[in-house]
Design a protein around this nucleic acid. Structure first.
Lengths: 162, 162
DNA sequence: CCCCACAATCTCGATGTCAAGAATCTTGAC
DNA sequence: GTCAAGATTCTTGACATCGAGATTGTGGGG
């Protein structure tokens, strides 16, 4: 039942017996798992011609509800990237015809990014594929265990939520 | 006790009541937490003039034990990046004087990357700073809860560990 | 009414990563 | 021995991201 992180920690304990590396049991696993999850998402989206980073933008628009439009600033806040990155992502999605840029009627500095019908179909399809895959990954955990896991992760995330 | 992910999920349930988005309770939190952790690591390393990606390489060498040297291929395997990325990282660390490239005596194609004394001091100092910071983050969790969390994460990671 | 601090978005340059392929060397089958 | 197949490392080109600053517009105090 030993995994890569257990080996990594054992090596540290041998080389640096003076420090307590036990936080790695949790935090190293979070980091490594996230890396693997991102790659898995990439595969799950491949059939839909979407990158995970593109899905992040589309999904923020989709779950905001009708009329499926947000400002670039709101998208930046939702997706945890910088404004320069968001400009680039929106450009790409516009080229693909999945979103469109509209002038903000109330603020001439502003812009609204809106999901096109094609974009909405893409994100809905990709979501189904993603969840099907994620359900597989979680199959090894009982309902109780998954709930406890989520609760602990929420506790850990709290210092970062704003 | 509601967090960003709870809001995100509630929005999905409103917009896509036909699908079960509960896997996000776990997996979205893992992804978002990893993002925050990477930024926190960046801050923790700033005093030591190291990027998280550089620390990853140095720490792999450090915990491999005396004589603190590995081949680029072994480093690729340890750090979950591609060979092109590793060439680039090693170049940077050589420029900083933290590692050196030596010819492999047994295989003339091969190279060994070895930690310099400066590099060893850097990685040891950075590790102390990192663990001090990580300990803070985990302070909100009891010992029991942290153990359960690590165990669940290990279960989730299993499909990816080769 | 004007001005200035602030806000929203985009531009630009630097950098890190990946993917694919080139260059070099090793190994085992014959 | 020789050669083909594989292993190892590096190179190259494309691209996404970040961070800082430029651009344009807003809104309240004098």
């Amino acid at each position: 039942m030993e995994d890569d992180v257990d080996r990594l920690i054992a090596a540290w304990e041998h080389e640096r017996p003076d420090v307590d590396v036990s936080p790695m049991h949790v935090l190293s696993r979070v980091t490594r798992l996230a890396l693997h999850l991102d790659r898995a998402r990439k595969e799950a989206f491949a059939d839909h011609d979407l990158e995970p980073s593109e899905f992040d933008v589309l999904s923020a628009l989709r779950r905001s509800g009708d009329p499926y439009q947000l400002s670039p600033g709101q998208l930046v806040h939702e997706t945890l990237v910088t404004s320069g990155t968001m400009t680039n992502r929106v450009d790409r999605l516009v080229r693909k015809g999945l979103v469109e840029r509209l002038p903000d009627p109330d603020d001439r500095r502003g812009v609204q990014v809106r999901l096109t019908p094609t974009g909405r179909a893409a994100v809905d399809g990709a979501l189904d594929a993603l969840l099907a895959h994620e359900k597989q990954l979680l199959a090894g955990l009982g309902e109780r265990e998954a709930g406890d896991l989520a609760a602990s992760l929420r506790t850990l995330s709290r210092p970062f939520d704003r």
